[in-house]
Nucleic acid binder design. Structure first.
Lengths: 346, 346
DNA sequence: CTGAAAGCGCTAACAA
DNA sequence: TTGTTAGCGCTTTCAG
């Protein structure tokens, strides 16, 4: 009866490498060589194969190739933000761009994936753990998100952007981050050294290590003068910076200095101060964090801390590549240097 | 010599379905059934298989499954924006969210991919055409981008978000958009009916059909009063709205009405007007487009046109699903209704 | 330089 | 309900 070899009537299925081989009158292996660079193939044969490929409209079946090669050529960039905040942060774009460019060098492709809630995280975790991608880059995780643990349990090569929250994760994962605590300490001290008082802070989400670290630095700088009412929590959004600052002003009408844990939030803070008739920096000095594009769009421009986003991305890809290449003795952690940038706001 | 069956020493390779079958003492097919829902398997056997799976830490090899099934379960959301504008638009996030949620219903996963320049577009085109994904959703394309043509030439099921620029593409692709021309005509007429003159416009990129359509509507409303110097081109960014409006004011100091082709640009326009000491809406009436979150953040809030983003996303997924399911007689095009929203700015 | 053949790990049709 | 078997389409030795 019909063996598989015989059902090869030119029906409507996608052409395979065998169809090409048959048409070109060569073996299957030769076609494979041609579509993989054409090395070690006589030019005449190569041309014949290419002609057959064009004639048939052939293109390789990626699933088959993945199976045979044992890898997919795809890397996931995982963003697990909730709701509206997805993509609000311009750094996502910068990261994505840098990854994409960098990965192309090693013939890999970047796939951006998102998870908004636990259910999506689990579904995404399955998807990734199961071999859809060769590796993953994970945007700064929040405490309590199950995804990181899920991925660590799988064998998926992984690099986290920013320091994970749990110490266990900090030790067993690869990640690249900055010393948030030290940088924030420096900023707060700078404000203090100007004789400003009281000085307050709008923090990032305290479920992130960055949010915590920056608050810890602020707190250490203030020492015994620290009071809990000098702190209000934001969520990285401009909006939260605005509202937080309004609250702070209400509690401390004589506020003289403000450390805002991100430039985006600081831009909101600047609006709040202007709306309340405060002069920056004369009456209240404002410092941000990140040195993102938002820092240049306020008036005056923001004094801030340069967060080396691009270097972070580059190093993350390098580390991931090492792990993918099999040359990786255990997790690698990296703390990149920051830089204090003085502009008009403080 | 060693046949494949014998090299099964518990070495360090990932466990396969055969390992599980052997350990559980069942056939391979049974294991397959269990990992695909466990229907038609006796409970006792199912448990045994699941135990073996846990014991071995088995998880399916996605590439093999894809090959056997002939599909991948992944859908691409393609964003081909240049540079910084990547992700600046909050609608990207809204689209991504809606897609993701909607796709999960049919067991598929959303992969976001980006292309910044022609080289990346080509590389991405190869990647997608070659079977990495089952289908694709393409964000509003710009004229001259090779990606759409590339994808149309492949057999990849595809739905475009917004109307393509070329008529050929409009006819041969599936897409879902709005009637930009008619909506813009309505807005401009509304301004005119208030007796405002002169009225000008900041357009979107004229390489997009939305940019063009909205300008065309404006132009038709003005009729013989139209002058080229009432038009300045933006790029959807807030920044470009600001700069464009500044230019317009210079040329038309008595400007009385302004139609800005997106709310994001309109927010920039409002800043420019305030910086120039113009009162909105008393001295100049401003209308935006999209009814995006930005429309509520200006003071006064923006009069605008509601762009049904979410419905667009839902319909796009529906159309794509139809095409994936094989039930699709040719391309499907959809024009969704818009709605004029009157707020404080005009 | 080239063809043949042995897998890659899984699904699905078939027979039992 | 279950095991067996024939592919899915490609890469990669291995001979020649």
């Amino acid at each position: 009866m019909a063996t598989s070899a015989q059902r090869g009537d030119a029906s409507h299925r996608r052409p395979t490498i065998d169809d090409v081989a048959r048409l070109a009158g060569v073996g299957r292996g030769t076609v494979s060589r041609v579509i993989n660079g054409g090395h070690n193939v006589r030019p005449a044969v190569r041309d014949a194969v290419n002609e057959a490929i064009d004639a048939l409209g052939y293109s390789v079946n990626q699933s088959a190739r993945n199976l045979a090669r044992g890898r997919t050529g795809s890397i996931a960039y995982i963003i697990s933000e909730r709701g509206d905040r997805l993509f609000e942060d311009p750094n996502f774009g910068l990261f994505a761009r840098t990854f994409s460019r960098q990965l192309r060098g090693s013939g890999r492709h970047l796939l951006i994936t998102t998870a908004e809630d636990e259910e999506e995280e689990n579904s995404l975790g399955d998807y990734l753990a199961v071999g859809h991608v060769d590796g993953a880059l994970l945007a700064l995780p929040h405490q309590g998100e199950p995804l990181l643990k899920r991925l660590m349990a799988s064998r998926l090569p992984l690099v986290v952007l920013g320091k994970p929250v749990d110490t266990d994760e900090q030790e067993r994962c690869s990640w690249v981050g900055i010393d948030d605590e030290a940088a924030a300490y420096g900023v707060a001290n700078y404000l203090l050294a100007q004789g400003r008082w009281p000085i307050a802070t709008v923090t990032g989400p305290l479920a992130t290590s960055s949010g915590r670290g920056r608050l810890a630095g602020f707190r250490r700088a203030l020492g015994r003068q620290f009071r809990q009412n000098l702190v209000v929590q934001g969520d990285w959004s401009s909006q939260s910076g605005y509202l937080g600052t309004k609250d702070l002003l209400e509690c401390h009408p004589t506020l003289a200095g403000l450390f805002v844990a991100s430039d985006l939030m600081a831009s909101g803070a600047m609006r709040a101060l202007r709306d309340s008739g405060r002069l920056v920096p004369e009456e209240v000095a404002v410092a941000g964090f990140d040195d993102s594009p938002a820092a240049l769009m306020t008036d005056p421009q923001l004094t801030t801390v340069r967060h080396p986003f691009e270097e972070t991305a580059l190093e993350a890809v390098r580390i991931l590549n090492d792990r993918l290449g099999g040359r990786a003795a255990g997790p690698e952690q990296l703390l990149l240097p920051t830089e204090f940038v003085i502009r008009g706001s403080a």
